[in-house]
Structures are given as structure tokens and as C-alpha cells.
């Protein structure tokens, strides 16, 4: 039982971690908690759904399951496009709303509030377009493979874990090794100085939106693949995402992933021990515990 809970927790944690990386990056560069980040997950999942169905309509062979997985080639193709489109959506929100508020010298809390309004708009728009009925990328059923011990996982779930691991390493290398990553860290420490040393801060902000939204899209597609697609999926993940970003330490990518896994595992264990109906409270308990004992998070620097 517990072994299986660990497996489930890791899978959920990987999705939470990817989403939390987006939150932590946008937070450390744009300096506000983006309540609309969860909606980027949902939008990513739905955009991929629409594109994947569209591709399947063009060519039915694209819908045939690939190898052991439940989905056809239409989904990975759609996912690539969806990442780009979700990024565009985030840039659009920045151009129409957040960027304008920044230019007017809006305070942190005005930005938070705007993100709250944007979240509600985006979520209800999804409800309007797709209704609240759950949707799926594939109707194919998958059999969970035994992994030794008492653990089982479907090929889709294992793919999700592997992809999350690859993305985290890639983002970590980008931040620590590349010129763009150094510029991002510079902007996150001191925007004004970053401008003085020749960094185009607006360009970095655009890159961060693209990265954050892209990761959110991938996390949303994963959640859609292993659970289901609903307009509220992002909203329901928001508290775990914030809890993971704060637990990991704002600005820390490895921290966000590690904390995402911790939140995912705690949820899975709580489901076993207390009951599934209390899952959503776990993130809150973790959040309160972090704020009480270590507000700068596991791998963060002092606020």
C-alpha cells in the first residue's frame, strides 16, 4: 500500500514540481505571486487537447497508440505547439495587463490582484469554451506494470516521471550554465543593476514568461494524461504549487522540484492514512509549517 502511495506521490509530485518551477521563476523575476499560473496549466492542457483532436481529425493514424502508451503521435506533436501557444498566452497577458501595471509602477499587491482577476477570467473562459465536463487525451485503457516490490505504474505515468526529470535538469543547466540563465539570476537579484550592466530586462521578463508558461503547459498535459482534463484542474493545483515554490525557496529550481515531490508524496501518504477527501488540505498544512519554521524555504536565501 505504502509503496504504491510513494509511486503515486512521485508522479503527482513531478507535475507539482514542474508547475512550481514556473511559479518560482516568475516570482523571482517579476516579484509577485501569480495566481493565474494555475490557469496556464489548464490552458496548456486544453490547447493540447484541441490540437491533438484536430490532428487526429486530419489523419486518424496519428491517434493510434504509440508503443506502450495510451496516446498517438498527435499528442506529442500537439504538446510542442501547445507549449508555444501557452507561452504566447502568457506574453499576451503580460502585454495587456501585467506589463502595463509594471510600467505604471503598480505595487506587488496590485499585480497579485490583477493575476487573481486574470485567473478567474481565464478559468471561466475555459468553462465557457469546453464546459465543465472532464475530457481525456485518449480513450485507450492502460494496464499498470508491476515495477517490483508492490509498486505499479502505467507507461504513461513512467513517461511523465522521466520527462519531468529531464526538464528539471535542463532548466537547472540553463540557469546555472548559460548566459541567459546568468542574466536571469542577475535580474532576479537586482533589476536596476541588471540594466546598468547591459541586460535587456524586458527580454529576460519575456523569456521567463515563456519558460514558466511552457513548463505549466507540460505539467498540465501530464495531469491531463494521467488524471483528466477539467477547467478547474489548474485552480485545484494552485495551492500545492505555491506550497512547493515557497517550501523549495523562491527562485530555486532544484528546490521547487524537490518540494514538489515532497508535497506530492505527502498528499499520497495522507490519502492512504487519512482519506482522499483531505488531499487538498495537505498543501495548506505544509505551507503553514514552512511559514512558521523556515519562511525562506529549503534551498532559498533569506527573504
Amino acid at each position: 500500500m505504502i509503496a504504491q502511495a510513494i509511486m503515486d506521490g512521485l508522479i503527482a509530485g513531478a507535475m507539482i514540481g514542474l508547475g512550481a518551477i514556473g511559479i518560482t521563476l516568475t516570482y523571482s523575476i517579476l516579484r509577485f505571486a501569480n495566481f493565474a499560473h494555475g490557469e496556464l496549466l489548464s490552458w496548456g492542457a486544453y490547447i493540447a487537447l484541441a490540437l491533438s483532436d484536430g490532428l487526429g481529425y486530419l489523419s486518424a493514424s496519428l491517434m493510434l497508440p504509440v508503443g506502450p502508451f495510451s496516446f498517438g503521435w498527435s499528442l506529442p506533436l500537439a504538446a510542442i505547439l501547445a507549449v508555444a501557444l501557452t507561452g504566447t498566452l502568457a506574453l499576451l497577458a503580460d502585454a495587456l495587463l501585467f506589463g502595463r501595471l509594471r510600467a505604471k509602477g503598480g505595487t506587488i499587491i496590485i499585480m497579485v490582484m490583477a493575476s487573481f482577476g486574470a485567473a478567474l477570467t481565464l478559468r471561466s473562459l475555459l468553462e465557457f469554451l469546453f464546459s465543465t465536463k472532464p475530457a481525456y487525451y485518449s480513450k485507450a485503457l492502460q494496464i499498470a506494470l508491476p515495477l517490483g516490490g508492490e509498486m505499479r505504474a502505467t507507461p504513461d505515468q513512467l513517461l511523465t516521471l522521466g520527462l519531468a526529470a529531464v526538464l528539471v535538469i535542463a532548466i537547472h543547466l540553463l540557469l546555472t550554465r548559460s548566459a541567459t540563465g546568468r542574466s536571469m539570476r542577475a535580474v532576479s537579484e537586482n533589476q536596476q543593476l541588471a540594466g546598468i550592466v547591459g541586460i535587456d530586462v524586458r527580454r529576460i521578463i519575456r523569456i521567463v514568461w515563456l519558460l514558466g508558461a511552457g513548463l505549466a503547459c507540460v505539467a498540465g498535459i501530464m495531469a491531463g494524461l494521467v488524471v483528466q482534463i477539467r477547467p478547474h484542474m489548474g485552480h485545484d493545483l494552485l495551492l500545492p504549487l505555491f506550497a512547493a515554490a515557497i517550501l523549495g525557496g523562491i527562485g530555486s529550481v532544484p528546490g521547487a522540484m524537490l518540494a514538489g515531490l515532497i508535497v506530492g508524496l505527502s498528499e499520497a501518504i495522507a490519502v492512504q492514512v487519512i482519506g482522499a477527501e483531505w488531499r487538498a488540505a495537505v498543501a495548506f498544512v505544509i505551507l503553514v509549517a514552512v511559514l512558521l519554521t523556515r519562511p525562506q524555504g529549503l534551498l532559498g536565501r533569506a527573504a
Binding site: A179, R182, S183, R185, A186, E189, N190, L193, A194, V197, G198, I199, R301
Partner: peptide, 15 residues
């Protein structure tokens, strides 16, 4: 940039 190393400070500017 206090959170970057000495070398990274120079690299950021050299970009």
C-alpha cells in the same frame, strides 16, 4: 550581484 560569483559578475557584463 552578491548572489553571483566574481567570475559570473564579469561574465554577465561581458555578454
Amino acid at each position: 550581484f552578491t548572489t553571483l560569483t566574481v567570475h559570473e559578475n564579469l561574465l554577465v557584463a561581458a555578454n
